[in-house]
């Protein structure tokens, strides 16, 4: 793809986020709150029962969870809605957008209205854990990989839905299966083997964050493997979105 072509895609992704994210934020601000509530409620319960020590795990898990829901899990419902209800995807097929830029546009829209929620997490984490600024050079790329991986997976799954209602419920189910059940809000070393954390991109990120921020006691092997798996998932889910998602319909 030419430089000009790449610029067209980048510009489109940004305009998409302005259009579907920013305009929604300023016109329907109540959406802002809802994206924050799920992870925050878990943190609250953990702190009540576990005390401040568990609050740190909760907050890191909450951050990992909020990043993946600010892309992937919410995309499933939204993308299914745009495709099935509005036929918007059918219109956008006949533009320069492709499944990747469309997904990134959607994901950036979701991120736009998740930003205030993410900011709350980051401020709380900063207040409690006092992370040195240099660590963010690792944290941000890891979160970015998680966000892209979850979004590509979310979009691909959404194109398999043929009813919007399944889209909304699948977001909830995936949020639970990938973002709550595995060791996201609790340390993986409580499990028979911490390698279970590798099952979901969200628990991978949570585990890595615990390792670098809380100095949680994980084998270095696990952390290396986590980063490799996360990278691989990002690449694989992106290829899936490009090749296996139903950008065009079969029904």
């Amino acid at each position: 793809m030419s430089l000009q072509g790449i610029w067209t895609q980048v510009k489109s992704v940004i305009v998409f986020a302005w259009f579907y994210g920013w305009l929604a934020v300023i016109r329907e601000p109540f959406w802002l709150v809802s994206s924050l509530l799920n992870p925050l409620s878990i943190v609250v319960i953990m702190t009540i029962f576990g005390g401040v020590r568990y609050m740190s795990f909760g907050l890191l898990g909450g951050l990992a969870m909020a990043v993946s829901s600010s892309g992937g899990f919410t995309i499933i419902g939204d993308a299914a809605y745009l495709r099935l209800e509005l036929k918007y995807q059918s219109m956008l097929i006949n533009t320069r957008l492709n499944p990747i830029s469309y997904t990134l546009g959607l994901a950036l829209s979701e991120l736009t209205y998740a930003l205030p929620g993410l900011a709350v997490f980051i401020i709380l984490i900063q207040l409690i854990m006092r992370i040195p600024a240099s660590l963010y050079l690792i944290i941000i790329p890891i979160l970015a990989l998680e966000w892209v991986a979850a979004s590509m997976l979310g979009f691909t799954l959404s194109t398999l839905m043929n009813d919007v209602r399944y889209g909304w419920s699948l977001s909830g189910i995936l949020g639970f299966l990938l973002g709550t059940l595995p060791p996201v809000f609790y340390p993986a070393y409580l499990l028979p083997t911490p390698y279970i954390a590798l099952v979901s991109p969200v628990s991978i990120v949570s585990t890595v964050l615990q390792y670098i921020i809380l100095k949680a006691n994980y084998p270095q092997e696990l952390i290396k493997l986590s980063v490799i798996v996360l990278l691989a998932e990002t690449v694989i889910f992106t290829i899936l979105a490009l090749r296996k998602s139903r950008w065009r319909s079969i029904y």
Binding site: V15, F16, L23, E28, E85, L86, M91, T95, R96
Partner: peptide
């Protein structure tokens, strides 16, 4: 097809044209 409900006609057409290059 139905338009996205929280945007204006101008925003709808403008963004579509940007997506078209």
């Amino acid at each position: 097809a139905k338009p996205i409900y929280f945007v204006t006609p101008y925003e709808l057409v403008f963004s579509y044209l940007v997506f078209r290059g």
